[in-house]
């Protein structure tokens, strides 16, 4: 591999943009949530404040090597997804390293962070971490089923697994978007997105109110900072993935911001409306409607 420093610079720049946009987006969403609930909410810059505070905490504790590795795996997962994702259509500089692997790489790289996080959380020995992780993994398995079906459907539809080519195939008008050419796959994937973001009704994994959840209480300071950084990046990258697959991709940053915001908003919106599922309910739910939609998407091919 010849090291292309221009491209490396752009990649790093893109990562920064994505990070900041992710932080801003989460602030906006929390604000919206608060307003819907009749509260005032946080200021828009709160996530940056949190992040800086976290990185600045002086006293820290560690439970062992895996305690370190957990957040690193997690952040590697997020950054890696970004690295293997073409961000803007038609731009070589903003396509990162997406030419080293295709959609399957993206799908499986999601697990990199999951796995590392699960292990890191386990190292602390906090039982709630186990509970949270086991619930998260349980739910995650079924979320991936409709997603897989949708991806297969897409791959067959466009006869490629390259994200860039899938985006390319959707150019030339809104009606070419997968959303319209393959609505069932889109529907299935969008439902699985709800689970992937873990907002209500699928937020038992984080269960922010009832129990002190494992990782975010155990992890603190720089560890938590790393996790928050990753959350911001990951949210944007996931929305970008969906944008690329179903909504025609983006040819400039503005389009990216609008589309990713709307996709993200969808999950927040649903979360506002529905109560929380128990874990077995969400597992079964994902194996009902989204699964059927996914199967239809495949059968219609």
């Amino acid at each position: 591999m010849n090291i292309d420093f221009t491209k490396l610079f752009f990649t790093f720049l893109g990562l920064m943009i994505v990070l900041n946009w992710g932080l801003l987006m989460s602030a906006i969403m929390r604000k919206i949530g608060a307003r819907v609930a009749g509260r005032y909410g946080i200021p828009w810059f709160q996530p940056w404040v949190d992040l800086i505070k976290n990185y600045a905490v002086r006293s820290q504790i560690t439970h062992g090597i895996m305690f370190y590795l957990g957040p690193v795996f997690r952040l590697s997962g997020g950054v890696g997804l970004f690295l293997f994702m073409p961000i803007l259509f038609g731009s070589n500089l903003w396509s990162n390293f997406s030419f080293q692997g295709d959609l399957i790489l993206i799908l499986y790289f999601q697990f990199f962070g999951m796995l590392g996080m699960a292990l890191g959380a386990g190292e602390g020995g906090q039982p709630h971490s186990f509970i949270g992780i086991s619930r998260g993994l349980s739910q995650f398995t079924t979320i991936e089923v409709p997603m897989t079906l949708a991806v297969i459907s897409l791959a067959v539809q466009y006869h490629t697994l390259s994200i860039s080519e899938i985006v390319a195939a959707q150019q030339g008008g809104i009606m070419n978007w997968t959303m319209f050419t393959n609505p069932f796959a889109t529907a299935a994937a969008m439902l699985s997105l709800l689970g992937a973001f873990g907002h209500s009704p699928f937020d038992l994994v984080k269960a922010p109110n009832e129990i002190p959840i494992g990782p975010p209480t155990e992890y603190h300071g720089t560890f938590l900072g790393v996790l928050r950084t990753n959350a911001a990046i990951l949210h944007v990258v996931e929305t970008v993935l969906f944008m690329n697959l179903f909504f025609g991709g983006a040819s400039n940053w503005f389009e990216l911001i609008i589309k990713s915001f709307l996709i993200y908003f969808w999950s927040v919106f649903v979360g506002m409306v529905f109560p929380r599922f128990r874990i077995e309910q969400s597992v079964v739910w994902f194996l009902k409607v989204p699964l059927i939609l996914g199967i239809i998407a495949i059968l219609l091919l």
Binding site: L83, Q100, D102, T160
Partner: peptide
């Protein structure tokens, strides 16, 4: 005919990224 994959490069990219992030943390 539909996909591509460079095992070695991915290994290198992930390795470098992991190393950077780990040393950062």
């Amino acid at each position: 005919s539909i996909g591509y994959w460079h095992g070695t490069h991915i290994m290198i990219i992930v390795g470098i990224m992991f190393a950077i992030l780990f040393s950062w943390l």
